[in-house]
């Protein structure tokens, strides 16, 4: 995992009460594998926006499935700015 992926894992682990950090992998699907529900997703978005200083729009969220997708989104947003 690279630095961005590691940070994303940390934040997801902070939100999902029943999930151990060790069980989160870059390929983990956030809803299907990790059991996130809508409030968890909103919570994650707020944390990610704070941490990385960017805005994640609801339509962007629809394209995101895995932990790696989140990291790639962040990297792309950073490259574009």
């Amino acid at each position: 995992m690279d630095e961005v992926e590691k940070k994303v894992v940390d934040l997801i682990a902070e939100v999902l009460v029943d999930v151990n950090k060790e069980n989160i992998e870059p390929g983990s699907k956030i809803v299907e594998d990790l059991g996130a529900e809508s409030l968890d997703i909103y919570d994650m978005i707020a944390l990610l926006e704070d941490e990385f200083g960017l805005e994640i729009k609801d339509e962007d969220v629809e394209k995101i499935q895995t932990v790696r997708d989140v990291a790639n989104f962040i990297k792309a947003a950073r490259a574009a700015s």
Binding site: L39, Y42, D43, I45, A46, E55
Partner: peptide
């Protein structure tokens, strides 16, 4: 408004 946390209400 964009900075408002989703867990405020609960």
């Amino acid at each position: 408004p964009k900075g408002t946390h989703p867990l405020m209400i609960p």
